[in-house]
Every structure is written in C-alpha cells, then in structure tokens.
C-alpha cells in the first residue's frame, strides 16, 4: 500500500510540474518523473510474497508461486527505453524552439507566437 501511495505522490508531482513550471525543459523533466511513477506502479504489481526474480535457477519444474510475474517487468523494460528515446525527441524539439524563438519560457513563447 505504501508503494502505491509513493507512486501516486510521484505521479502527482510530475503532473503538477508539467502544469505549473514555466520552463519547457523543466516540464519535460516533470514528465519523466511522471513516467517513473507509472513504472514504479507497474513493477510493484509484479511483486509476490515469497517469490523470487523471474529467472529459472537449478531445480525441477517451475511453479507459478515461486517466481514473480515477468510480464510487468517486460513491459516496463521496454517502456524505460522508449521513454529515453521520446525524451531525446522532445529535447530535439526544445533545441529547435530555443534556436528559433530564443526562449524556453512558456509565457514568453506564447507571447512571441502571437
């Protein structure tokens, strides 16, 4: 339960940062915090009491109760790398915005767009 509340707090922080921070780069970092919250939540769903990591060791046929759920780990593994590359794409957009409008401040940007 605590970990769910932790994920909720991170998620709220991320959303609040995206909405309230004035700088586009900070908004992007806040979006990354929000993504981390989703990843923490997803991976915590994979946890099972008394189970170990989903890698087969020595021994007989595996039983489902002995290993944690591999599916959320798989999904989040790819989600982390996807978030890295989408962050890179967003940074590319920021570089273009910076060189064209000479600002990353949201309000000044909106004023210059008029």
């Amino acid at each position: 339960m605590t970990i769910y509340a932790f994920a909720a707090a991170l998620f709220t922080l991320g959303i609040a940062g995206m909405a309230l921070l004035p700088n586009l780069l900070r908004k992007l970092l806040a979006m990354n915090v929000m993504q981390v919250a989703v990843i923490v939540f997803f991976v915590s769903l994979a946890f099972k009491d008394g189970a170990t990591v989903p890698i087969l060791g020595q021994g007989g046929a595996p039983r489902a109760a002995e290993f944690m759920n591999p599916l959320p780990h798989t999904l989040m593994l790819t989600a982390i790398v996807v978030s890295v590359s989408t962050t890179g794409l967003a940074l590319g957009l920021l570089v273009r915005i910076r060189s064209r409008f000479r600002t990353l401040n949201e309000q000044r940007l909106l004023d210059r767009l008029r």
């Binding site: 339960m1 099972k48 009491d49 595996p62 039983r63 489902a64 759920n69 591999p70 599916l71 959320p72």
Partner: peptide
C-alpha cells in the same frame, strides 16, 4: 501489495512462468 492471488499474478503469468523455459 505482494498478494500472490491478485489478478495480475493469476492471469497469464502462471503460463509464462511454468512453460517459458
């Protein structure tokens, strides 16, 4: 948290764990 009988742990994942190797 950590409930082995949660839906995420009883749907599909037993199949992966027991048959994947």
């Amino acid at each position: 948290f950590g409930d082995p009988a949660s839906p995420a742990s009883t749907h599909l994942s037993p199949r992966f764990i027991e048959d994947a190797a």
